[in-house]
Design a protein around this nucleic acid. Sequence first.
DNA 1: ACCTGAACACCGTTCAAGT
DNA 2: ACCTGAACACCGTTCAAGT
Lengths: 190, 190
Amino acid sequence: MPQVRPMRADARRNYERLLKVAAEAFAEHGEGASLDDIAKRAGVGSGTLYRHFPTRQALLEAAYVERIEAIAARADELAGHLPPGEALVEWLNELGVGMIQVRGLKALLGSTVTDGSSAAATLCADTMRSAVTRLVEAAQREGTLRPDVEPIEVLRLAHGVATASELADGEGKAIRRYLALLTEGLRPGT
Amino acid sequence: MPQVRPMRADARRNYERLLKVAAEAFAEHGEGASLDDIAKRAGVGSGTLYRHFPTRQALLEAAYVERIEAIAARADELAGHLPPGEALVEWLNELGVGMIQVRGLKALLGSTVTDGSSAAATLCADTMRSAVTRLVEAAQREGTLRPDVEPIEVLRLAHGVATASELADGEGKAIRRYLALLTEGLRPGT
DNA sequence: ACCTGAACACCGTTCAAGT
DNA sequence: ACCTGAACACCGTTCAAGT
């Protein structure tokens, strides 16, 4: 049963223009970019925006799918080049830099790791979770990552590290350091 | 030179009503509480609010000074009861719970640990920094905390831990666990 | 079926007019 | 010196009217 009937030509055109403009707007003004402005810049009535993307979250997600998928693909790429533990840390580093430098991305990723009891499992959430799960389980098998940490917890901690780094300098310069503090711990080394 | 001439009676009354109402509003609606609503509830024109508190940040800070000072005082109290390392962790735990449960507090504290090159040193920032500095330096002298971590970094990491915990459950239940992961590190224990 | 855009209910901020 | 509140410029969201 093909639930998704093809869109009417004008609808499809509007949909795509909205996505393109939205990506620009979020990049420029962050997650809070004016929806009305996006509709206007796409040459579309505001109602049309709401028809295609009922919530800001839906638009944000749709505008960033490609980037999310690139991040997920990067996980496998790193897993191919590096030992599991290093692959995980390097991926978390790139993820953190992205969250700080790509405006709006951090907010979107945050919503993919919330308790989500109500929130339906979105595409972005699934993509991110399966990517991190592969890296985490490999590192745990290798013995370089605590066995009692769940993949989603690692994503949440990455979010925390990004937040801390953002407070530090607003760019991504502190990510690597705070990530190291997290992996090594705050206790003095032996 | 007494720079602060005493306020006119009506001004002082308005100031205090605004503070009281603001504290309630922030507690109820978070840091984004409507300023216009606060002014109305205080029985005051919106211009009066702006006269006393030129920015939302100023109002937020003024509304929470007492709470900030209580948190700082708690640092010394814990330092009296516990060995330095434990005092620090316990304080960070209470701080984290506060950031999650007291609406608006996390945002305010975030602004006190940003790179602050431009932002003047505010009272809240000073209070928090001196409190954490005492705990951190004591723990470092004791040898239970890495010597290369700066006090303000610990505050930023605490913010990160709170963020991660907030994503986990929206209350403070995960704080202690994520704090433990931070202090012990993500590597497997020996 | 889909789009438009006016209408509505909300913001924060400013500033002329009042006391 | 301080306060008031209308005025302005902005939001997001809905929905009757159009094609």
